[in-house]
Design a protein around this nucleic acid. Structure first.
Length: 553
RNA sequence: GGGCCCGUAGCUCAGCCAGGUAGAGCGGCGGGCUUUUAACCCGUAGGUCCCGGGUUCGAAUCCCGGCGGGCCCGCCA
């Protein structure tokens, strides 16, 4: 037996989980509740996965392993008003301005394929949550909540409106709410706005009377059709779902900000224990032209979980989130996906003990982030095969899609990337990356990564341009390659070295390769010759080479 | 007016919470291998740790005060 006296390095999320475990246990509830919140104001970018979905999910799973029962919600703020920001209005071919101030849920889908604005933009995010997490997250909307628990809460608010007012006014030095203020915002039945109505009278338990500052309409509204102002609504969500933990973006974290006033209301008016919080920094987007901007929903800046999954595993994004402490900036771009894979592979090797980290802290950060990067279950028992993303990007282009699982894998074995007895998970991952990397090259890859073998008939014409001293050498290359007993990268390279060493001079070697690439791809350069020929296979390689070898005889 | 993150090699950053002779990767330079998958191997140069005080035997690290950059809040959500 030995006592652990050394202070071991810990991952930030484990330290957080420790604190949360204590706080949750003190609440002595049979099931504790985690929540996240999103306003569906436009592009549902991946940045929103960070604080509202992935971080609480990982914490939940750690606490569940320690025996706690945790219910995780994600609340969509669908009653919020549509701000008519430029980027939002532009979504509509014309006339988008007329929806200014409408509740998001009532704004039509500009593309016309979903029943409203929320449904449309949520479709790039919602269905993919289960790919990025274990899927045990219940999505609720404030629109639904106002018909049930939030409606009860609204009644409570109206009853204690004077207390609510006095608390909120502590945070409103310049524009205090006046006596008699009724904290409810109905939807104007005439112009549709939710941001211009003012309650003038409580009619009965279920109805209020309002005036619309926009159109002047005076009407009656049910208290389930409208919303509470933000600072009250957030408390209402805590109250309705019984929230015990909820992270929040840095914008809510300021002293005297919404978080502070909500805690005040929770404790002093509604007599509930406010949830534990966690401020987090937003996710930045490195745009294709090299700028760095905060991702933004209503400004339509960034890319969606759907976009991510087209070109990369959810593991990689989880890894990036976990590797970065919550209050630090995290920048991502789709162009850098291949680098993210090599970072991830490094962490993977450290996790399986195949590579040493430079410090114990680094080891813990990377290995633990890797371990928690699996959306479902744990990492496999042994190290999966790692094939560089860019290598698979090339392979995916030179081998027809329907042959990836046969030819493709055979070539990876031939090139030594795969053993004869590959792991099941490694194989699965490679086949998945082939699909993703192929899409990546098309959508985000640099042009020099794009390889397409040109048709043999075209190649034949180009081959005729090879001048005779060079065709001599191409003939030799052809013969040497034809004689190879194994179509292996190493042997192919050997043949190239033998032939090119006879060319006498760098400029001739350059010319030689230029011709080769022009015949193969129509361009003057391409991926390294030996691996490329190894990838495209013996028969096809020899067909192309014979075209050059036979020309200008 | 308030808050957060940051300031360490040319670049990107680690190290700071628990003080003990300044680190990594990329880039540079020299060499090797190789036409070119953002590749690999060997060697090498390069730093007033933003500034000023304080605590200490000892400070990049802790405390106080500045400066610079980025972001957020100021009663919207």
């Amino acid at each position: 037996m030995c006592l652990r006296v050394l202070i071991v390095a810990r991952h930030w999320i484990d330290e957080l989980a420790d604190k949360l475990y204590d706080a949750m246990t003190r609440r002595s509830k049979s099931i504790v509740v985690f929540n996240g919140g999103l306003s569906v104001s436009g592009l549902q970018h991946v940045g929103r996965l960070r604080g509202e979905v992935i971080i609480p999910e990982v914490l939940r799973r750690i606490l569940e392993k320690r025996g706690l029962k945790v219910k995780q919600y994600l609340t969509l703020y669908t009653q919020d008003s549509w701000k008519a920001k430029e980027a939002q209005v532009e979504r509509f071919k014309e006339g988008g301005e007329k929806y200014a101030g409408w509740p998001l849920i009532r704004v039509p889908d500009p593309a016309g394929c979903h029943s409203n604005w929320v449904e449309h933009y949520w479709s790039d995010f919602g269905p993919f949550i289960k790919e990025f997490t274990d899927g045990k997250i219940e999505v609720v909307t404030t629109t639904e909540l106002y018909k049930s628990r939030l409606k009860e809460f609204t009644k409570l608010v109206l009853e204690s409106r004077e207390k609510v007012r006095s608390v909120l006014n502590k945070y409103r030095g310049r524009k205090p709410y006046e006596e008699g203020w009724i904290p409810f915002e109905p939807i104007c039945e005439k112009c549709g706005r939710i941001d211009t109505t003012e309650c003038t009278r409580i009619v009965d338990e279920e109805h209020v009377e309002y005036t619309c500052r926009n159109c002047g309409h005076v009407g009656l509204s049910l208290i389930e059709s409208g919303k509470l102002m933000w600072r009250i609504e957030w408390v209402g969500v805590w109250w309705s779902l019984g929230v015990d933990f909820e992270p929040f973006g840095k914008d809510h974290a300021m002293p005297g900000g919404s978080r502070d006033s909500c805690v005040d209301l929770a404790v002093n008016v509604f007599n509930i224990t406010p949830p534990e919080g966690l401020p987090y920094e937003w996710v930045e987007w490195r745009t294709p032209d090299g700028r760095v901007v905060d991702m933004g929903s209503s400004d339509f800046l960034g890319f969606t979980p759907r976009d991510w999954l087209e070109v990369a595993h959810p593991h990689i994004f989880r890894f990036l989130v976990l590797r970065t402490p919550p209050m630090k900036k995290l920048s991502v771009s789709l162009h850098e996906v291949p680098q993210y894979y090599s970072l991830y592979y490094k962490a993977e090797r450290i996790y399986y003990g195949l590579e040493k980290a430079s410090s114990e802290e680094e080891r813990e950060l990377l290995a633990r982030s890797y371990e928690l990067s699996y959306p479902h279950g744990d990492p496999p028992l042994s190290q999966p095969e790692q094939v560089p993303y860019l290598h698979l990007a090339i392979l995916a282009q030179v081998v027809p899609r329907e042959k990836w699982s046969s030819e493709g894998l055979a070539r990876l074995k031939a090139s030594g990337h795969l053993s004869d007895q590959p792991t099941e998970y490694g194989l699965k991952r490679i086949l998945e990356i082939l699909v993703k990397a192929h899409t990546w090259v098309e959508k985000y890859g640099p042009s020099e990564m794009r390889v397409e073998l040109i048709p043999l008939t075209v190649a034949e014409k180009i081959a005729r341009e090879v001048t005779s001293p060079l065709s001599e050498h191409f003939r030799e290359l052809y013969e040497r390659l034809r004689a190879l007993s194994n179509w292996r990268e190493e042997d192919i390279k050997e043949a190239f070295i033998v032939v090119t060493s006879k060319l006498g001079g760098e400029s001739n070697i350059k010319l030689f390769y230029t011709h080769l690439y022009r015949v193969l791809t129509g361009k003057e350069s391409g991926p390294r010759a030996a691996p490329l020929l190894a990838l495209i296979g013996r028969d096809l390689s020899l067909k192309y080479l014979s075209l050059i070898a036979k020309s200008n005889v």
